[in-house]
Amino acid sequence: MSQEPPSAADTRERQPNETNIRALVEAFYRRVDDDPLLGPIFARELAGRWDEHLAKMTTFWSSLVLGSKQYRGNVQEAHRPLEGIEPRHFARWLSLFLNMVEARYAPAAAVQFMEPALRIAQSLQLSKFGWDYQIPAEQEELLAALKRQRTGGNDEPRFPERPAGEPFPARFVGKPVDER
């Protein structure tokens, strides 16, 4: 009798730890480096400092998700000097990050990354574009859904429905990068 191969859900991490957070960060930033919209910005800002940035981001996400409290820095100040950042950059970063997290972690573990990522993005967007900037409705709805899942007592969160092949989350701002 042959066994069926495990489904993608069976191979995802059930709990974050230092090792899988490091793997997430490294895989994510490889993807960012290859991205036609984000890659040039990161290449410009991190030239010769990628290893330092990856270590800092591993510490950052470990501090947030595991509560290790090792990260020492100011997220707002770190992003303030970045030039040429537009709403579509935030949308792309969020889409890539949330897709990567969803692919690597079981839903209950993924929420531990997704909710802070959306909150931080919102804070950075308001800081960058002004307090009158309208956070995209899709972004607010996703954050509210994640909060309900976290506080509603569901053991296995369900992410918002989307058509097959549609990136997670649905478009936040305007058209996707490949349609511009």
Rank of each mutant, 00 (worst) to 15 (best):
G84Y: 12
G39C: 08
M100L: 11
I41K: 14
N99K: 14
L46D: 03
T59I: 08
T59E: 10
F97S: 09
R31V: 06
L37M: 15
L64F: 12
F60S: 08
A27N: 13
P107M: 07
Y105M: 07
F42Y: 15
V65D: 15
E102I: 07
D34A: 14
R31H: 12
H53N: 14
V75G: 04
N99W: 10
G73Y: 13
S63C: 08
R104K: 07
I41D: 09
K69S: 11
E77C: 05
E52M: 10
F42H: 05
M100Q: 14
S95L: 09
H89K: 06
R31F: 03
N99S: 15
R88N: 05
N74Q: 05
F90V: 00
R88E: 09
F97H: 08
L54A: 04
S62L: 10
E77H: 11
A91Q: 14
F42G: 04
V25E: 02
A78M: 02
D35R: 07
N99G: 08
E77Y: 08
G48A: 05
S95Y: 11
K56D: 09
R49Y: 06
A27H: 08
L96I: 06
V101L: 06
W93T: 02
S62F: 04
L64W: 07
W93M: 10
L66V: 05
L66D: 06
T59G: 06
S62E: 13
G39H: 08
V65C: 06
H79Q: 04
V25T: 01
V32P: 00
A106M: 08
L37N: 04
L96T: 14
A108V: 03
L64A: 12
L37P: 02
Y29K: 00
L98P: 12
E86F: 07
R80P: 02
F90C: 01
F28S: 03
V25R: 01
D35P: 11
S63D: 04
L96D: 07
E45I: 10
K69E: 13
H79E: 00
I41S: 12
P87F: 00
V32F: 00
T58K: 03
G48L: 04
R31Y: 06
E102L: 11
F97T: 13
L98W: 07
S68Y: 04
R31N: 15
D34W: 15
T58P: 01
P81F: 01
L37S: 02
Y105T: 05
L94H: 08
S68C: 02
M57C: 02
A27S: 15
M57G: 01
F42W: 10
Q70E: 10
Y29Q: 00
L94G: 12
I41V: 12
F97A: 15
Q70F: 14
E83N: 14
R80T: 09
W50P: 00
V25Y: 01
W50F: 06
V75E: 08
W93R: 03
D51H: 15
K56S: 12
H79V: 00
A27C: 15
F42A: 06
Y29E: 01
M100R: 07
R31I: 05
A106Q: 08
P87L: 06
A108G: 01
A27I: 05
L66F: 12
